[in-house]
Design a protein around this nucleic acid. Structure first.
Length: 515
RNA sequence: UCCCCGGUAGCUCAGUCGGUAGAGCGGCUGACUGUUAAUCAGUAGGUCCGUGGUUCGAGUCCACGCCGGGGAGCCA
């Protein structure tokens, strides 16, 4: 079936990024113990249970604002029958100078200097240099430190020492080194440049490198911030189905699955379901994976991506535009607040992100066409906005913009025409700066039954498949508005990534479903 | 579906006019008690994507195929 046309960005031009950039990654050192650790120490003390849970989790995500009380894990409780192995988070080592700590993690890097061996160990929370001195540990352990393959898992016990020579300010004077599991061969992903094809083939291992580490942490923070804003604003999270019924001729871009002998399809939007849910709960959102079987090979396209789709009963275009700029700004400000080391690791221009605050400039389709007059991107009224148009217009601003009121004929059937100008719809796209294109698409839904029936017939859509949706107009119809935000594109923009696939842990693209 | 680019050592790449296969990094061996992508010395490592063709001779030229990258269309 047809879906909202601008839930996600139109293509962005390669030129906007300075031409064809080679996908290389220098897998350099991850941030060591830095302000992440210190910042954490300054955050409000968590409940005992929370602290306990984090110790168990071994350096899990940083605390977010309102955090639910975690379950008590009895089996791992210190008072239980199982003694827990000590495990100190590298992030917290700065607070343990002079104490003995046990770091369990992976050998990130190794340098040797005669009877000294420097091991950089990472545990997900940070990296710390462990110094192994011949004589300070049994000879066999020194030998192991000297020979251990990178990315082998280890348990290192030692005294935390403040040392200005160490990258994070502290290092570990090792008294005991255990190789938990040695790599069976040299780790495939090295510290130098690699091509994107190789990195994606080794994605499960590449994940351990700095860029993926930083990106996934930012992604997690973005997800958290988006939910946080909506939850605080009174929205109810409603999970949309992934299996959807055979719906329309537009199934060419849907993944078909065998549903007990019947055809079914992987969802490409939860929007229509959210409209139903909004009639129960008022303000709702879904946040989950969506699937598009399009053979698009661009840095903006994934075949599986996550979309945040709020829907507001009795909402209108102005409200929806306000929510768009609010959630995007909130996500950016949370990332700025909590992910500085990650942004630094990614080389992101933080100043550009700091400008991202409401209000975003409102640009009507008419205004945009006016701006494009005389430029190579000029198009006649009525033609759809493409990447050249988006880039040319967004380049005139220093923050995301809201482009609204597109021609009715180029938009999806369910979008509501502007009563004052039926030739345009009350829809809006949020276009990111720097050629990242469309992050969000949305607007008011057509609520008039007769109009929808007319549009469905006009576009030759199978009416039967839409009967349930039409029921929403038959039984207490209301004005409704909402939008879809593409998570990977948003994260790509915030992180300054080259490709949306970098924003997913295990991206699915036209030519990749492995690993 | 279309257009462009690519496939040579584990990785990233160079390879001139068609004439014995190269570099950096990584690996291995050794040296080094403060290294930060350490440094220094030595060393090993090749189905030049595949098939066929042209040629005395093909990594190089031609055809077809396979795989990958970027973009267009389309889509979000």
């Amino acid at each position: 079936m047809e879906t909202e046309e601008h839930l996600l960005p139109q293509p962005r031009r390669a030129e906007a990024l300075g031409g064809r950039r080679r996908h290389r990654d220098r897998v350099a050192q991850p941030p060591g113990l830095d302000d992440a650790s210190r910042r954490l120490a300054n955050e409000q003390p968590a409940a005992d249970a929370l602290v306990h849970a984090r110790r168990i989790a071994g350096g899990g995500p940083r605390p977010a604002t309102p955090e639910p009380r975690p379950p008590v894990l009895r089996s791992a409780s210190p008072s239980g029958t199982h003694a827990m192995a000590q495990r100190d988070s590298i992030r917290d080592l700065a607070q343990k100078v002079g104490q003995t700590a046990v770091v369990r993690g992976w050998v990130y890097h190794r340098r040797t200097a005669g009877k000294l061996c420097f091991l950089e160990v990472r545990d997900g929370s940070g990296v710390v240099q462990a110094v192994v001195k011949k004589g300070a540990v049994p000879d066999a352990q020194f030998e192991a430190a000297d020979k251990v393959r990178l990315e082998s898992s280890v348990a290192v016990t030692g005294t935390v020492r403040a040392d200005p020579r160490a990258a994070g300010g502290v290092e570990l004077s090792v008294s005991d080194l255990q190789v938990v599991s040695a790599c069976v061969a040299d780790f495939p992903v090295g510290k130098k440049e690699h091509g994107i094809g190789f990195l994606m083939e080794e994605r499960h291992l590449y994940l351990r490198s700095r860029r993926p580490w930083a990106t996934l942490r930012v992604r997690a923070e973005v997800e958290r911030a988006l939910r946080e804003w909506l939850d605080a604003a009174g929205y109810t999270a409603v999970d949309a189905p992934i299996f959807t019924p055979s719906a329309a001729e537009g199934t060419a871009n849907l993944f078909r699955v065998d549903y007990f002998g019947e055809p079914a399809f992987l969802s490409q939007t939860g929007q229509l379901y959210m409209e139903a849910a909004a009639q129960s709960l008022g303000k709702v959102y879904c946040f989950g994976p969506t699937f598009r079987a399009e053979k698009s090979k661009t840095r903006r396209h994934l075949t599986e991506f996550w979309m945040l789709e709020p829907e507001i009963a009795f909402g209108d275009l102005d409200e929806v535009m306000s929510v768009m700029e609010s959630v995007v700004s909130h996500a950016v400000s949370r990332v700025l607040e909590r992910c500085r080391p990650e942004l630094e690791a990614l080389g992101r221009d933080v100043a550009a992100l700091e400008r991202v605050k409401p209000p975003f400039p409102r640009v009507s389709y008419d205004d945009a066409l006016e701006m494009l007059k005389g430029t190579p991107a000029e198009i006649p009224w009525g033609e759809d906005f493409g990447a050249p148009q988006e880039d040319a217009v967004s380049a005139k601003f220093d923050r995301p913009i809201l482009v609204h009121r597109f021609p009715t004929k180029i938009k999806a059937f369910y979008m509501k025409p502007d009563p004052a100008r039926p030739e345009v719809v009350l829809g809006c796209d949020c276009v990111a700066p720097d050629g990242y294109g469309e992050l969000i698409g949305g607007g008011e839904r057509a609520s008039d039954l007769a109009y929808l029936e007319h549009k469905i017939a006009e576009e030759n859509l199978p009416k039967a498949a839409y009967e349930w949706y039409l029921d929403l107009r038959r039984y207490g119809a209301c004005p409704s508005a909402g939008f879809g935000l593409g998570l990977e594109r948003t994260v790509s923009w915030i992180c300054g990534l080259d490709h949306a696939r970098e924003a997913a842990a295990f991206p699915r693209t036209l030519h990749r479903v492995y690993p």
